[in-house]
């Protein structure tokens, strides 16, 4: 009865870098034609297949990019397992915002949070303002992955979400190993509804 592991991924980045389109592109096949024509692109759930047949479920939270909502971001990245931070490769300013987000996450978010940086709009290579190498070097320096992506062509989109899935799952496995469930010394069935997945009570035998 092993259920699919769920992870919370938050998407950050300045307005207009194409965050919402990126998530939407990734989830597009999750939307089917139906009577509901209005699509809420702000929360998306999608399963990702990892190597070794492991399936994980990503709960992807889009966040508001406008500056006026800046102060509300902590509400959204609270308890997130991973963050996708997007910038626009044709806009140098948006890359500086990435650095600001990283700093904030490092000091405010869960200490184990995994980060993937997305250089979006890579279909407009000729207008590039951020050197790809600089971006990769920066990502390496903070132990994050970097992908060039295009919500328009779809390039790099699946790859970057698979990478974040791989990373959050690895962290989860590491933590699970470090903190194995304490066995119950009293014996008997105990119910535990913990923060994460509900835990099975320790099975028997009664006192």
């Amino acid at each position: 009865m092993d259920s699919v592991k769920e992870f919370k991924i938050v998407t950050l980045g300045e307005g207009r870098v194409g965050k919402t389109s990126l998530t939407l592109k990734f989830a597009r096949n999750e939307f089917h034609d139906n009577e509901i024509s209005t699509v809420q692109a702000n929360f998306i759930q999608k399963d990702v297949q990892l190597d070794g047949g492991i399936q994980v479920r990503l709960n992807i939270w889009d966040t508001a990019g406008q500056e006026r909502f800046r102060a509300l971001a902590p509400n959204y990245y609270r308890q997130a397992n991973g963050a996708v931070i997007a910038y626009d490769i044709t806009d140098a300013g948006s890359f500086n915002k990435v650095k600001a987000w990283v700093k904030e996450l490092q000091s405010q978010a869960d200490k184990d949070i995994s980060i993937v940086i997305a250089g979006n709009k890579c279909d407009r290579e000729s207008e590039r303002q951020i050197s790809a190498q600089d971006a990769i070097d920066y990502a390496n320096s903070i132990n994050a992955a970097h992908f060039n992506s295009s919500a328009k062509s779809g390039k790099g989109v699946n790859e970057l979400y698979t990478e974040i899935a791989r990373r959050v799952y690895a962290v989860h496995q590491k933590n699970a190993k470090a903190n194995p469930q304490l066995s119950n010394s009293r014996g008997g069935r105990r119910v535990r509804v913990t923060n994460d997945e509900p835990q099975k009570p320790k099975n028997k035998n009664c006192c």
Binding site: G15, T38, V39, Q40, A41, N42, A64, G65, Q66, L72
Partner: peptide, 13 residues
């Protein structure tokens, strides 16, 4: 069109 009616995080807020 349907593509116009996509509600982003900014809009939902």
């Amino acid at each position: 069109s349907k593509d116009d009616l996509v509600i982003s995080a900014d809009q939902i807020l």
